[in-house]
Structures are given as structure tokens and as C-alpha cells.
Design a protein around this nucleic acid. Structure first.
Lengths: 160, 160
DNA sequence: AATGAAATCCCAACGTG
DNA sequence: CACGTTGGGATTTCATT
């Protein structure tokens, strides 16, 4: 299931470019070129290559959740009834296809999944939990942690 | 500390635009205009306004963590020794200023904080935990959940 | 809010080390 | 093979109505 992208190791320039575009991908290529000491065309080629190879997965506008009236952020620890492969895949597909589930991690340590769910209000959150957890018998139990403060929500990766 | 952005309620067009640009902010404005039935100039102005008002927090290239050799993603539940405001703020600042801590949520439900930490390997992860948790006495205990699979890692918000 | 002009940016082609 | 330079084409931006 993994991308069989032949990952040509990123050199110094690629990493410098990534550090910039992950903060602001609308930075003009000319300006990037200036910073990393390359021509604009070279920057363009490298970005295109990294987009094609999947190193850059997506170019997205990051929204402020409160501004779009999504006031409930919950972290949910999910325990499956068993850890058979079919059960795990069933759960993965369920979470993947549920748009309110923003993030989903399959983890070690007793818990099976950790989800991050964002909804407009508590009512919407209750509906989601009912739809997801109560109606699927392969979920043994779950625990909701409601967020009081999104201290840090960015997704910037520290490039070595 | 919160942005007191005067949230002018988003209308139908704004939401339609946001749904597009959060998936791909490099979509040509002309194409956006086509979809939402507005002129390209109108789209341009609305996007600029939403960027200025903070509804669009940033425009970023989303990287594939594995491609940039960040192979450990851990979810950490942190318990503080006490819940005094000063202690909580101390912890918040610590997590905010640690770049490996990608996400940080202050939550209800017995746990104080939930962190998402991304590092290159287990060695780097151990160093981080030692630096963060062992050296700060206001942290009572913590539990690490290592992810086996990032089933869903995007941050798309479902706009009503 | 729509139109058109000017500036800017992106991208392909060519030539070089 | 990757870089730099150049030029055409598209896009964003701004001024005007």
C-alpha cells in the first residue's frame, strides 16, 4: 500500500526550499531562489519534482477553526473489540470516510486508535459519536477528551 | 491571548471558496470563480480579505513525513503536577517553543495535555522526551503512544 | 462588482559547465 | 545531469467605470 516512490535523498537545497514553502507556499520562486542561492527555474523544477514524487503531498490553505465556527475539538481514544486485521481495516475505512475525523492514528500501547474530531458544537459532536461508535459493534469502548485550548495546531515538520 | 477577530459571518461564497483552497490553494482564481459563480476579481478580493482577517491562517505545502525521514510519530498524554494557571502556562510555553511538538491540545478528562510529536527516529524521540519531561518538575507523568500508521493526517475542516 | 491594462509570475526551450 | 538565462504565455493586481 506504500508509495513506491524512489525517494532520491533530499539535498541541502531541497530541504531549504521545503522549509520555506511549508511556511508559505505562495512565496515567489524568485524570492526563494534568492534565499537558497539558486535560479528561479531551478527552484521551479525542484518544487515540481517534489510534488510529483509525493514529498509535497498537498498545497493547502490552513483555516482558523474558530473563524469557520467549528468550536469543538475532541481527541478520542478508541479501543477495538479485537485486533484482527479485518477489524482494524474496517475501522480504518470508517474513520477515513468520516470527514469530521480530521486525523486518525493507529497506535501501540493498549489503545487502538486515536482520533481528532472537529465539529461545530457539542450537539454535532454527540451525533458523530453516536453514528460512529454506537452503531459499530467492532468498537469496544472509547474515551473523549474535549479540547479547552488548541495551543498548537500547525503541522510544520522540522526538516533536519 | 485570543484573536478577537471580528468575525464577519462567512457567506455562501466564502465557504465555497474555502472548501476549494484548503484542498489546493494553487487553484487558479479563474477556475474558482467558475465553480462558485463569481468573477475572478471577486474571488481574489475575498481571499485577500480572509487572509488579512485571519480566517486563512497560512498557506502551506503539506509534506510527507516519511519522505523527509521523520519516521516516528508519537501521541503523548501529559499529566501536570497541578492545574494552577501559572503551571499550565509554563507547560504551554514549553510545548509551543519545542519544534518537534507539532500539535498541542489542552484537554479535559484527567489528562492535561495531548501532544503530537514527530522525530526522525526513536533515538531522537528519546532525547526529546528526556529534555521535555524529565527536566521539568511540573510534569507529573506522561504516556507515549507510538503510531504504527498515520491513517489520516490531513487537516481539512468540514465547512458547513 | 465588472472591465481592461500593467506588472508579475510561472514554465518550457535552449545553451553551458 | 543539473544549472542559468531568455522569452512567451498565463495570472495576479490595480485603476477606472
Amino acid at each position: 500500500m506504500n508509495k513506491k516512490t524512489i525517494t532520491k535523498p533530499l539535498d541541502k537545497f531541497d530541504r531549504a526550499i521545503l522549509r520555506i514553502v511549508q511556511k508559505d507556499n505562495k512565496t515567489p520562486q524568485r524570492q526563494i531562489a534568492d534565499i537558497v542561492h539558486l535560479s528561479a527555474a531551478a527552484v521551479q523544477r525542484r518544487i515540481a519534482a517534489m510534488e510529483k514524487s509525493g514529498i509535497i503531498k498537498q498545497n493547502s490553505a490552513v483555516l482558523d477553526v474558530h473563524a469557520v465556527d467549528m468550536n469543538i475539538t475532541a481527541i478520542v481514544e478508541v479501543h477495538l473489540r479485537d485486533e484482527r486485521i479485518e477489524t482494524v481495516d474496517l475501522a480504518k475505512n470508517l474513520f477515513k470516510s468520516t470527514p469530521e475525523v480530521q486525523q486518525c492514528y493507529y497506535v501501540t500501547g493498549g489503545i487502538s486508535f486515536v482520533l481528532i474530531i472537529v465539529t461545530a458544537d457539542v450537539k454535532a459532536y454527540e451525533q458523530i459519536t453516536r453514528r460512529i461508535f454506537a452503531q459499530n459493534d467492532f468498537i469496544a469502548k472509547y474515551r473523549s477528551l474535549i479540547t479547552l485550548d488548541r495551543v498548537k495546531s500547525g503541522s510544520e515538520i522540522v526538516i533536519p
